[in-house]
């Protein structure tokens, strides 16, 4: 059994990756490097960007903006989700608003943010509005799934409100919140790059705009891999943290 898990988790995906890169290398031979740069050219470009310090500088900007918008979404979304989950009145009051928030096109937010906040805050704002509904909806889901039997236990043993919240509600909402956070962080890096591309002159998204204009397709690929890497890294780190935190009882 151990061998088979090694096979599926380590070796086989690695072969898949190697196969994909080889295929890419082969295909790129038929096209001009502006259309499809070879893996080697992309690697060269990545080294250039890393050595020139661009990776850290632009990547840092993007991460900062993404995390700012995302953190604000958690800070606002968690209490809001708890309120909505606990009160049917607030729930019916805010439901249309949240659904509206979810289906509003990204480009509308982008343009509105430019008008309301000026260009520099657009990326963080866009991340905020795209991740906020994810946090809110997951938190509501968590509150709705609270075990009523445990609430009775707390009532019988006269657990006060603060502890009821901290020791009964929060642990049960946590798995849902963390699931929301993982999804939201995945969205964060896509949204921030898109917003940077359309609104500012720094950050990974903005560098992709520059690469496009200069027909530096290898750079475009390299930046894309930076974003992919960022997404994978945060996903893995968080999933690892979640497993460690919840495996005792989930």
């Amino acid at each position: 059994m151990k061998n088979s898990s090694l096979l599926t988790r380590g070796l086989v995906p690695l072969f898949g990756l190697i196969f994909f890169i080889l295929l890419w290398q082969l295909t790129s031979g038929f096209y001009h490097q502006v259309v499809l740069p070879s893996p080697l050219e992309v690697a060269r470009s990545a080294v250039k960007l890393t050595a020139g310090g661009q990776l850290w500088e632009q990547g840092g900007q993007t991460i900062g903006r993404g995390l700012a918008g995302f953190s604000l979404a958690v800070l606002v979304g968690l209490p809001l989700g708890l309120f909505i989950g606990l009160s049917p009145l607030i729930s019916s009051l805010l439901r249309p608003l949240i659904v509206g928030l979810q289906v509003t096109p990204l480009v509308s937010w982008l343009l509105l943010a430019m008008i309301w906040l000026g260009f520099s805050k657009v990326p963080s704002f866009v991340v905020f509005v795209t991740t906020l509904p994810l946090i809110i909806i997951n938190t509501i889901q968590g509150v709705r799934n609270i075990d009523k039997q445990l609430l009775q236990v707390a009532q019988v043993f006269q657990i006060n409100r603060a502890r009821l919240f901290r020791e009964i509600y929060l642990p049960q909402v946590l798995p849902y919140l963390l699931a929301g956070i993982i999804t939201a962080l995945g969205t964060t890096w896509k949204a921030v790059a898109m917003a940077e591309f359309l609104s500012v002159s720094t950050g990974v998204g903005a560098r992709m705009a520059v690469a496009r204009i200069n027909l530096e397709t290898a750079d475009l690929f390299a930046w894309t891999f930076v974003l992919v890497g960022l997404g994978l890294l945060t996903d893995r780190l968080l999933s690892h943290f979640v497993n460690k935190k919840l495996r005792h009882w989930m």
Partner: peptide, 25 residues
């Protein structure tokens, strides 16, 4: 004090913490 028909334990607390939960205050 009450013994429910189901154990109704807090799964995120250890055995000792489950008892401590009702004693804390």
């Amino acid at each position: 004090s009450y013994v429910f028909q189901e154990p109704r334990l807090l799964p995120w607390k250890t055995v000792a913490e489950n008892v401590a939960f009702v004693l804390d205050d």
